[in-house]
Write a protein that binds this DNA or RNA. Structure first.
Lengths: 163, 163
DNA sequence: TCAAACTGGTTTGATATAAAACTAAGTTGA
DNA sequence: TCAACTTAGTTTTATATCAAACCAGTTTGA
């Protein structure tokens, strides 16, 4: 640490916040965006705890599930549906193709693009991830209780309006 | 031109999903975690649209606001309060110190740690960011309407239980 | 019909993040 | 008292992500 930058504040009333003490969040307390980030991060970490053991990355789940539900989908449509930039999808697909969880077939009608499908191996992996996701969602269900549909409705509206 | 109905010649009925067509999300549709990620991402992008013009990074806002509300807070407590790993806080603080938005003073009682404060310049920047945040939150308010407190309550519970 | 505009996908560059290893300082208990 | 443990902060390493630049193929309109 560069101690020279630390001012010797004789300020006797400089109170160092410590562990157990509640930290004041001020306006932050009422900002939806702030709590959205915290909740997303907590949910993501919890999901990773469930899948972390196997060779399955959390980012794969949405991609595999969407391809499963939309055989023949293109990378662009997949990018939009999964809410990730197209340039983020490229390396994910490269890995999924390399692991032979996904296959692609040329689209003669548009040579720039191609159609995506799960391989049988991919369907298996998806089944495993879906089990983790279901487990994870059960945890979330218990937390949000009967407000789940309302919560999802609100989140969906946020996406629809802001995105 | 509606290309979506174009299915490739001969081969099976591989259907290429395209633009306007709804993509089937299947189980994903009812997963809180999935919608949390989409909403967080949309909210973050919207916030960045508001701050992007100036030299203010979105990640700074929570940090500056928390220091403002808790003068003398330590990096560790800040890390916990802002929901980011301590190793993520280090470079943020380095930058804020470099820009002289934040100053730190040694804590004689524990030489490992130090106390953080906003400089007058930091208070100014925070005011600007707070204006963006308030603007952003107004957008969110309109979207969630009178369900805001309920939404925040649910998000907070997700964090409390899962984190 | 063909040049210009557009679109799907990849590459590159920048930022944000966490986890683990590490250093230095503080705490504890026999 | 001092060795073992714990904690605060930094560094290193690995991902995830987006945006912009780019390329190749497609569509448009004069």
């Amino acid at each position: 640490m560069d101690k020279t930058e630390i001012s010797k504040g004789g300020s006797a009333r400089a109170r160092v916040k410590d562990d157990g003490k509640p930290v004041l969040l001020g306006e932050l307390e009422n900002y939806v965006g702030f709590h959205l980030r915290l909740a997303q991060s907590a949910s993501f970490k919890a999901f990773r705890r469930l899948t972390g053991e196997s060779d399955l990355r959390p980012g794969w789940f949405a991609v595999l599930a969407i391809i499963h539900n939309n055989p023949g989908i293109t990378p662009m449509a997949l990018s939009r549906a999964s809410g990730r930039d197209k340039s983020t999808i490229t390396p994910v697909l490269r890995e999924l193709l390399r692991e032979e969880l996904v296959r692609r077939s040329a689209n003669p009608a548009d040579k720039r693009s191609y159609a995506l499908f799960l391989t049988p191996h991919g369907e298996e992996k998806l089944a495993h991830l879906a089990a983790c996701a279901a487990e994870h969602d059960r945890e979330l269900d218990e937390i949000v209780g009967d407000k789940k549909q309302e919560l999802i409705r609100l989140l969906r509206r946020i996406v629809a309006v802001l995105d």
